[in-house]
């Protein structure tokens, strides 16, 4: 489903100084996998995540998403892929403060250009019920707990029925009990709904939820 071939990412800091964040990255992730990408801070795992999430493009090498080389896609096509193919879950939750829980969950659907085969509002309300946030539909993010916010973020990631959920330190801002709940939720989604999950983290016990571990250090994969 996702294939990295000799991917390099080089940042120019100024005219002469460059920083190579990723060196010759090769891996493949298949449909239905639960992969943890683990590495210390500064290892390049965030850069890797941004590349998988189509927020950035490689300096060298190829990224294939379902066989399509993203190099050949324009900004609109990349936006559509982010909209339909990936669902993001961030450490900071990244909900939009002025929109309600329901509106935050619906936000990806308003940016969709394809005809949806479901009723967005109905689906969002179903998700809210399923995730135990009934009654909070019209609350604003600052009125609910961190764990609830992260659930809303997961619902927002799920509304477009993506093939992949990409979670960047999803438990980083949560207490350990809530963190475990969120990780179990992701595990359940992978098991019951066959959604591919990639979790990027620096914590070994969070990474242990994955069925497969990719270790990254100094921009290179050290263990796969």
């Amino acid at each position: 489903m996702i294939k990295f071939k000799n991917v390099n990412k080089i940042y120019k800091i100024d005219k002469e100084v460059v920083f190579q964040a990723l060196k010759n990255i090769n891996f493949e992730i298949k449909k239905g996998e639960f992969v943890s990408i683990i590495g210390p801070s500064g290892s390049g795992k965030s850069t890797l995540m941004h590349l998988i999430g189509l927020l950035d493009t490689p300096t060298k090498g190829e990224i294939l998403i379902e066989g399509k080389n993203i190099k050949n896609l324009n900004d609109n096509e990349l936006s559509s892929l982010r909209n339909e193919f990936v669902g993001f879950v961030f450490q900071q939750f990244n909900l939009i403060a002025k929109l309600t829980v329901l509106e935050n969950i619906l936000l990806p659907t308003i940016y969709s250009r394809k005809k949806l085969d479901f009723d967005p509002r109905k689906k969002a309300l179903e998700l809210i019920k399923k995730f135990g946030l009934s009654g909070k539909e019209n609350s604003y993010p600052n009125k609910i707990s961190g764990g609830q916010q992260q659930r809303v973020a997961i619902m927002r990631a799920l509304i477009m029925q993506p093939k992949l959920i990409l979670a960047d330190e999803p438990t980083g801002n949560l207490d350990s009990k809530t963190g475990i709940e969120i990780m179990n939720l992701l595990k359940k989604l992978n098991k019951e709904e066959k959604i591919t999950i990639i979790v990027v983290t620096h914590e070994a016990d969070i990474a242990s939820y994955g069925k497969r571990l990719i270790k990254i250090k100094d921009g290179e994969i050290v263990d796969n």
Binding site: G53, S79, F88, L107, P108, Y111
Partner: peptide, 9 residues
């Protein structure tokens, strides 16, 4: 955030 969840330019 909006761009990450699929907003176009």
């Amino acid at each position: 955030i909006r761009r990450a969840i699929g907003a176009r330019k």
